[in-house]
């Protein structure tokens, strides 16, 4: 891939960069449209203030962390539908044990779910779509049984508040966390054998296997990372809203998939850049926020949300016809 891009002229976008550029352009369009609206309605430009943008980045950081994990799984042409209740379980178990063990507890929940998912997909070879769906149901059942179906009566620990809600120099710590995870993701995908194996498996798993890639191990690690990032995001979200509650993850799985796909990652795996996922997350968060500033009813928001995903994909996500 890198050889083909170096032969092109400097300013021509590669196949993987085009979606990112278009999505970034669309972010600007959203901001301009929102600003025109607020200017004509209130005569002010709250959308362009640093406070607003930083706040959106903070909201985006939770989705961004989930989307990072989801991207790993989508790149190996799988999907993880167990994210919602992995997230909720991470948050609930963390707040339940509390104290210094909150963070290890959340990560342990993610690790266990990831190992189970990895076992189902890599060893039993069950389609991830259905296996992770089942794991999600089991996690939901475990949490409902554990909490008795009510919101758990526990509070976020100081560390969770520190990581998710507090600020230094006016910038929320959650954004720093997202940046750190993003740097790790870029290094992982670009500079390590594991990252290259992920792209190889996503393109053709059999070929990767025959080339000596330890496909089982890579599948396991990808699912473990995805689940761990989800439960970690759950910990942050519990810190942000000061408590964990039933169904707190339900609103995150589809936006996470949408963010990854809008950012140019092929839903069938094997192609996509991490930068795109960041842009996709920001796009979705901003779109949601601007629509709510416009006081758009839920009905209109859903329609615009769906239409934007389709429109973006019609521009650059078109697959190839089967002709042989």
């Amino acid at each position: 891939m890198s050889t083909s891009s170096s032969t092109k002229s400097r300013f021509e976008l590669t196949r993987d960069d085009k979606p990112i550029a278009i999505a970034a352009l669309f972010i600007v369009v959203i901001l301009i449209a929102g600003t025109i609206y607020t200017l004509s309605r209130y005569g002010s430009m709250p959308l362009l203030t640093p406070t607003y943008l930083i706040q959106q980045l903070q909201i985006g950081s939770y989705l961004g962390i989930i989307a990072a994990g989801m991207m790993l799984v989508i790149l190996i042409s799988q999907i993880d539908l167990s994210v919602p209740w992995t997230l909720a379980a991470g948050a609930m178990m963390a707040t339940a044990v509390g104290g210094p063990w909150a963070l290890p507890m959340a990560l342990a929940v993610g690790l266990i779910v990831g190992v189970v998912n990895g076992f189902g997909v890599a060893v039993l070879r069950i389609p991830s779509m259905i296996f992770t769906l089942g794991v999600n149901a089991v996690m939901r059942g475990l949490m409902v049984a554990q909490t008795g179906g009510f919101a758990p009566q526990t509070k976020a620990t100081d560390l969770m508040r520190f990581l998710a809600a507090e600020r230094s120099f006016g910038i929320p710590h959650a954004i720093f966390v997202w940046i750190l995870i993003s740097i790790a993701m870029v290094i992982l995908l670009k500079k390590t054998a594991f990252g290259r194996s992920i792209y190889a498996i996503g393109n053709k798993e059999a070929a990767a296997y025959l080339s000596g890639v330890p496909t089982k191990r890579v599948l396991f690690i990808a699912f473990i990372l995805c689940s761990t990032l989800s439960s970690f995001a759950g910990l942050l979200l519990a810190g942000y809203s000061t408590k964990a509650y039933q169904g707190m993850g339900d609103a995150y799985v589809l936006p996470a998939i949408a963010a990854v796909v809008i950012g140019g990652t092929n839903i069938l795996g094997g192609r996509g850049r991490y930068l795109g996922t960041i842009v996709g997350v920001i796009l979705i968060v901003l779109l949601n926020s601007v629509l709510s500033i416009m006081e758009m009813p839920e009905a209109g928001r859903q329609i615009i949300y769906g239409a934007v995903i389709i429109a973006m994909l019609l521009v650059y996500g078109r697959g190839e016809k089967a002709t042989s």
């Binding site: 839903i267 995903i309 389709i310 078109r318």
Partner: peptide, 20 residues
Amino acid sequence: GRIQPIIATLATGAIYIGLA
């Protein structure tokens, strides 16, 4: 549109819920 069914119907699903 040649969009993958899973992601196309994810988006149209949002539209139908909006209409509902």
